[in-house]
Write a protein that binds this DNA or RNA. Sequence first.
DNA 1: GTGCTTGCAAAGAATTTGCATAATT
DNA 2: AATTATGCAAATTCTTTGCAAGCAC
Lengths: 139, 139
Amino acid sequence: MVSTIDRKSELIHALEDIGCRVTGPRVEIIQEISTLEGSFTAEDINTRLPALGRATIFRTIKLLQDTQKLCKTVLFDGTVRYSLDTGFHHHHLICVKCGDIKEMRSMELERVLRVAAKKIPDQVVGHSLEIYRICSNCS
Amino acid sequence: MVSTIDRKSELIHALEDIGCRVTGPRVEIIQEISTLEGSFTAEDINTRLPALGRATIFRTIKLLQDTQKLCKTVLFDGTVRYSLDTGFHHHHLICVKCGDIKEMRSMELERVLRVAAKKIPDQVVGHSLEIYRICSNCS
DNA sequence: GTGCTTGCAAAGAATTTGCATAATT
DNA sequence: AATTATGCAAATTCTTTGCAAGCAC
């Protein structure tokens, strides 16, 4: 299990690595993201950090996506949510009630997807798979 | 192969079935959708039928979704595209260059997905799978 | 000090809604 | 004739941008 502190410094270092300054607002946003267990929306951060400008929140989220540490997911209804990213290829378990997103990996699924890709005449460049569920909090 | 005419009357009947009137604007929109081979955006229809109000286009598209004959897909970049729907469970083959969407079905994939779902402790209510490719027009 | 960042407000883009008018059944 | 549908324009929602002032390095 990764601690909040570890996640926080990992994200801060990731920003530094792409040449960003470590500023107060950015640290505050990273703090919130690290504390949140599941996925979140830009609005979630805005609500928790009302002193920050929305633009800063969107800009920081974008930077974190650039570091590959944050993953953007557009849900079936068009809602945009973000979740921490391990950096490995993975799929999402999405709760249809609260929108929470968890990562999921399965070698078996990947294998079948590779086989399926071979049957497609065009060049396959990737895939995304979302499994919809009702999470334990919501059921 | 389904003809444009068949698709058109199928969509018109589908609207009638949910208690909608068959109006000029709706028929025009259905005509365009039936003629288009792949997927399309609301803007595509608006461009082809500039005499119609945008609101009418969005409202008609929504009605067609209600009939289950039209499928809404939100792409990785947030773009919204629509495509004709067979009504059966299926997945999407999406071209990363032009956004074109084709339906795809695979018993093998479904089987593996069912097995994967059983391993998830929560109640799984569905899934969606998109395979990204470069279509023959774009490659 | 220099240049990257911030917050505000304004601009955008996409979609929805209210309402008077027009068309369908 | 009774209702539903349309088109326009205004309102929404979410996100981005321009810019002067404020920080990090």
